[in-house]
Amino acid sequence: MTAYIVRRLFATLPVMAVVALFVFFLLRFAPGDPAAIIAGEDATAEAIAAVRAKLGLDRPMVEQFFVWILQLAQGDMGVSIFSNLAVTRLISQRVEPTVALTLSTLFVAVALAIPIGVVAAWKARKLVDRLVMGFAVLGFAMPGFVLAYILIYFFAVQWQLLPVQGYRPIGEGLWPFVECLILPSVALGVTYMALIARITRASMLEVLAQDYIRTANAKGLATDRVLLLHALKNAAVPIITVIGIGIALLISGVVITETVFNIPGLGRLTVDAVLKRDYPVVQGLILVFAAAKVLVNLIIDISYAFLDPRIRY
């Protein structure tokens, strides 16, 4: 298993290299010029050229690319064109809120979705199932930012139970930290929860029709043991896969949610950097997102082996 993990980690390097290549050139070919933005609207052509030379953007693109890659290899993501701060520092300052929001959303979604899906499959085609799955369709259809404003209106404005927006680092105490995360996590998590609940139900239904479930019932096992051990463990692989895919969705969802709730995370940093064509920052962010995705995939692949003894590496 350790050998497999090490091998998989090495296998991520080419993936990351391709991501780096794409990110770099796509940005360069996108319309917009950072030098023109920095120089200002009334700047002369000479002034813009001077700024461009200062940033090294006048050099051949291939040369720029290799300079960037060599820096990266040393753990240096470059310096923001606008704020003159190191990209690594900018990103690390913003990582905590995003990681906290992603994990709490994941927790909210999974903790609700799996029981919902299991109950729906158990009571398939009965009232509970129809209610729960109707709710899931609604959740799936409702855009996160719409739900966000609805939640804010009731929980923060009308009933004043939770803060309207903002973020408090975990260092300032557990409750202030949690309090700020509840609404964004629910708003972001509902779509995701609906997706996982549907997959859980479908996967459980398939498993519940298997011969070994009949065997488990023929042993007179308690319903919870049949559902949660015999069935859910077999149903887990597709569920885990969708949770993994969902994390990719979360990363894009985070951008909107952070904006709505005014959370100073990576999502907001990304939007700002893209709008200003701050190449080093955007490159660094996309690499970080890509690395997170690759890592999630790895964790998921490894979890398969723990869930299903027939999968061996």
């Binding site: 298997q210 011969d211 070994y212 009949r214 065997t215 488990a216 023929a218 051990l229 015999h230 463990k233 077999n234 869930l307 299903d308 003894p309 027939r310």
Partner: peptide, 13 residues
């Protein structure tokens, strides 16, 4: 006991 020993035991236990 059932006809299909290949599918009547739970594969993950």
């Amino acid at each position: 006991i059932f006809q299909e020993p290949m599918t009547s035991l739970n594969p993950v236990l």
